[in-house]
């Protein structure tokens, strides 16, 4: 059996060798660049209105046209990338943190603790995530921070389940028994031996979750429960465009395309990463 290179550079070089991995990596790189350099890249301020030029198609001044308030769509889409990542990355980190923690606890200690945690996970997972997020946002009120927290809280059970399963199987390993016999504390066993084993699975899962979070954010913003105007979330652009799509289809086309490309990029990236890091998981849906 060929030994797997698990260093970061090794993974990346393997990733770009496959076409899907390459495309995914390029898309994500472009997204990150767009998000970081948004102020430099966008030709106009995303909130400056020019009512007399509203709902125009692409022109030499506005490369993607303007929205119903005459705001430059290109600039809004570019800043929209920022919002998508600003929500998705922290939300995934939150769910990662809570999810891994609960998964470790449940898997390692088992018994009644495991039972309670599983009930919590089942309860959350039994509700559709967008509906749960809607309910929580209605109670908390829409804002960027609330959005991030709510998304984090709705998505963590996925991580917990994966981690729990991995921990349970790792717990049976001989070296864990040996470590226990040597008098190691649970914390040491978890941190030193079990956690490293679950990292690949969790990384894959979070890459796959990012596009899901971006889509849910857009969905919630579309419904008016996400970021507040004039923040140019793609969902907001879609919603505004929807009200005027008979006059100009460009807001819908551009925001829809941005959303589609992003989701596509992350999915390709995540799947390729999975094939490299954990071939066992191939064919498993996130």
């Amino acid at each position: 059996m060929r030994k797997k290179k698990n260093s970061e550079i090794g993974v990346l070089s393997q990733l770009v060798k496959t076409p899907s991995g390459l495309i995914g990596t390029i898309i994500i790189a472009l997204l990150l660049i767009t998000a970081i350099f948004a102020p430099i890249l966008s030709p106009y301020d995303f909130s400056t209105q020019n009512i007399s030029e509203r709902l125009s198609g692409p022109t030499s001044e506005h490369h993607l046209g303007t929205d119903h308030l005459g705001r430059d769509l290109l600039s809004r889409i570019i800043y929209g990338t920022r919002i998508a990542l600003k929500v998705a990355i922290p939300a995934v980190i939150i769910s990662l943190f809570i999810g891994v923690l609960l998964g470790l606890i449940a898997g390692y200690f088992g018994g009644i603790i495991d039972y309670i945690i599983i009930i919590i996970l089942d309860t959350i997972q039994s509700l559709p995530s967008i509906v749960l997020a809607l309910v929580m946002l209605t109670l908390l009120g829409p804002s960027l921070t609330n959005l991030i927290v709510v998304m984090g809280l709705t998505l963590f059970p996925g991580y917990s389940r994966v981690v729990r399963a991995q921990v349970m199987s790792a717990r049976q390993e001989l070296y864990v028994d040996a470590e226990k016999a040597l008098g190691a504390k649970p914390l040491r066993i978890i941190a030193g031996h079990i956690l490293p084993n679950v990292v690949p699975a969790v990384i894959i899962l979070s890459t796959m979750d990012l596009p899901a979070v971006i889509t849910i954010e857009a969905g919630l913003s579309f419904l008016g429960m996400g970021v507040r105007p004039p923040s140019p979330s793609w969902g907001v652009i879609l919603n505004d465009g929807f009200s005027h799509f008979r006059q100009s289809p460009w807001p819908i086309i551009t925001a829809g395309a941005a959303l589609a490309i992003t989701t596509f990029g992350f999915t390709l990236f995540g799947e390729s990463l999975r094939d490299i890091l954990d071939p066992k998981m191939s064919g498993m849906d996130s």
Partner: peptide
């Protein structure tokens, strides 16, 4: 969309005189 548009126009207008207007759109 009607009221959101009013609010967004007003938001832009008020920015010019130093007023920061938050839009709280609700069901």
């Amino acid at each position: 969309s009607e009221y959101r548009v009013w609010a967004e126009v007003l938001q832009q207008n008020l920015k010019e005189i130093g007023i920061n207007l938050e839009i709280n759109s609700m069901e």
